Amino acid sequence: MSNDTIKLQAQARTKFGKGAARQIRRENKIPAVMYGHGADPLHITLVGHDAMMALKNPNALLTIVLDGDEQLALAKDVQRDPIKPVIEHIDLVIVRKGEKVVIDVPVHLEGEAAPETLVNLDNSSLQVEVEATNIPESVTVSVEGLEAGTLILAGAVELPAGAMLITDPEALVVNVTQQISAEALEAELAEAEAEAGIEHEPTDEEAAEAEGEAAEGAEGDAAAEGDAEKSDDA
């Protein structure tokens, strides 16, 4: 956990609407709104590059500096462009020192499970309640040497001091299974496709092989007929 905050310089925003937002983004800034603790929503702009770097950690504790005043905040919602690496808008929620917040913390796996196993991460994050000024970047789960059939539930994950689990303790986080061979996987897929009535066009190799077998069969039939005719002539 870290008590460090990231300072972001902000400016008050007085123009609104899509046109104003586009203009703000053209200036390499990001429109944002900050609210919470009964305060009126405060519309601001943030320096684009600084905000993007800060929000590489979605749970980063931010110090928003506006007209010399500082306010602690967390990013509540970050709207990103679906194509370009651009943040379009940020919702910030005001927090206080000592206040508890509920956030999603990523699960980080370390170690290697037993040979010929697969490690499935069923829940990539856990929801926990922590102090706003003491948010963990992640929680670590060791899979070192775990055998197939091992299940790790949320309640068994060790949390940082002061953190309380909100996720259902019975929620599956890690499932270690037996690794399946390529042949077995292919057989399962073929069986599933057959049950679903899915038919595939033969590949060029399969078609050539089938033609070869058909030709061999035809030659065999012709030879058999020839032998039969010779036998009749005799």
Results as ranks from 00 to 15, higher is better:
Gly68Ile: 02
Arg80Leu: 08
Lys97Tyr: 07
Arg96Tyr: 01
Thr14Lys: 06
Val130Thr: 04
Ile94Ala: 11
Lys76His: 13
Glu209Ala: 15
Ile44Ala: 05
Val47Tyr: 00
Ser2Phe: 00
Glu216Gln: 13
Glu112Pro: 11
Arg96Val: 00
Ala163Val: 09
Ala161Gly: 12
Val139Asp: 10
Leu153Gly: 07
Leu126Lys: 04
Ala54Asn: 11
Val101Cys: 08
Val130Gly: 06
Asn175Gly: 00
Gly17Val: 04
Lys97Gly: 04
Leu151Tyr: 05
Ser124Glu: 13
Ala51Glu: 01
Glu183His: 05
Lys100Trp: 08
Lys29Val: 04
Val128Asp: 02
Ile135Leu: 08
Ser138Tyr: 07
Ala171Pro: 05
Ala182Pro: 10
Leu55Cys: 07
Glu199His: 10
Glu229Lys: 14
Ala196Arg: 14
Leu121Tyr: 01
Lys230Arg: 14
His89Thr: 06
Gly19Val: 03
Leu55Trp: 06
Ile198Cys: 12
Ala192Phe: 08
Ala171Thr: 15
Thr177Phe: 00
Glu211Leu: 15
Thr177His: 01
Ser231Met: 11
Val130Ala: 10
Val101Glu: 02
Ala208Asn: 10
Ala207Ile: 15
Ile44Asn: 12
Thr150Leu: 11
Ala171Gln: 14
Ile103Ser: 01
Glu216Ala: 10
Glu213Trp: 03
Asn175Phe: 02
Ala156Ile: 06
Pro31Ser: 03
Glu116Gln: 14
